[in-house]
Design a protein around this nucleic acid. Sequence first.
RNA 1: GCCCGGGUGGUGUAGCCAGGCUAGCAUAGGAGCCUGUCGAGCUCCAGACCCGGGUUCAAAUCCCGGCCCGGGCGCCA
Length: 418
Amino acid sequence: MGGWVSEVRDVGRHLRFIVLRTWDKKIQLTLKRGVAPDELFDVTDNLTQETVLVAYGEPAPEKKARAVDLEIIPERIEVVSRAEPKLPLDPNWKVPALLPTRLDNRPLDLRRPEVQAIFKITASLIRGMIDWLDEHGFLMVFTPAIIGGASESGAEVFRVDYFGKEAFLRQDPQLHRQLTILGGFERIYDLGPNWRAEPSHTTRHITEFRSLAVEMAFISDETDVMRVEEQVVVSGIKRVLEERSRDLELLGVELEVPQTPFPELRFPQIYDILAEFGKEIPYGSDYDTESEGLLWRYVREKYGSDFFFVNRFPFEAKPFYVMKAEPPWARSVDLLYKGLELSSGGQREHRYEVLLEQIREKGLKEESMEWFTKFFRYGAPPHGGFAIGIERLVKQMLDLKNIREASLFPRDPERVLP
RNA sequence: GCCCGGGUGGUGUAGCCAGGCUAGCAUAGGAGCCUGUCGAGCUCCAGACCCGGGUUCAAAUCCCGGCCCGGGCGCCA
């Protein structure tokens, strides 16, 4: 078996314990002088923490070590890769490192079982979500990440030199998901990366994140989308509970399957709720970050839920492609989890003439969006969908302080390495 | 983008406001002791004030500039 040296303890001259860390257990190698060959003591003299060993041997007849999963009496030990003595952070966490130090030295940080737990949980979460989608007739597709046409809203995008032409990294798979629907695929999902060139300095933004983006045709209205979205989330959380109870315990997280349907708040009633908390938002305007926290408090007290939808956002706050409801509102839905926006979605506008009108209303040039809009001339079903930010979902589910902890190698305005 | 805060051994911190003895502690590292440890214990050793300028008899400490980082807001997932 192979692993990283977590600890070496000499107890007297005749006994040495070496604790190895593997990705799923702790193993103690026990060396007794007189029992173990002297050469095993020789090769393990001056072992440094985090050195990689491969050991061969049999389990001890009686496991006396309590704090490990396995106790081995080694017959042979190979020092595969000796770690330098001064580590940039301590994976044993005797001295906790700060987040920037952790991220600068992420491969060492990732050795901690608590950190690995985050990504094991993420894998189960995603598996649970996409299994539900597969079981309900959704097809996994991959839409492009490099987009040649103008961006959907003029929000900050990364520019790419595409053989001398200008292209952009997608902020969202939104437009191509819709075009895939126009391609006759009635239920799809796309799991992939998105990029935002926003120089945001917060604990809930990174410049590269992944989303699970779902789109479905022949919906009655945006509530069909909400019913799918909550089932996807519930299915993911159920899977985490089934497969990762030990990892949840390691992180000290108590997780429950949320009740469905999730509570739904709508504009303009939102303004009245916020007013109860003394928060005045001008009628017809979007709410701010503080409001998200206030609405969560409201929903928790009234419905006891950590999840809730917000529906009927002001059209002026949303992109051109959303479908309008009674003016000035739109069939545009956000899902919030513990007061943080997890996803945006809703019903899309599929009527060509209306779509063009909305593009003009947003002050965009019709020509710039023609690569997208022209296909709505040839038969477009009513449709809608949503995109859930994976890292945000994980952050909220595990009560992580910073979204960067939910990303293996996070990218933010100051960090593109390692 | 706007605003606020912070950079002390490898890591994490005390000291800064009220400038002044060999910059304290923990952990990791080196040397040694201890026959089963339980993030073991004990003794000793080595290791640091982000960069530049200024004020002062004296600067980690006060002032200015720079660099780097963190956070809040905006915007969003």
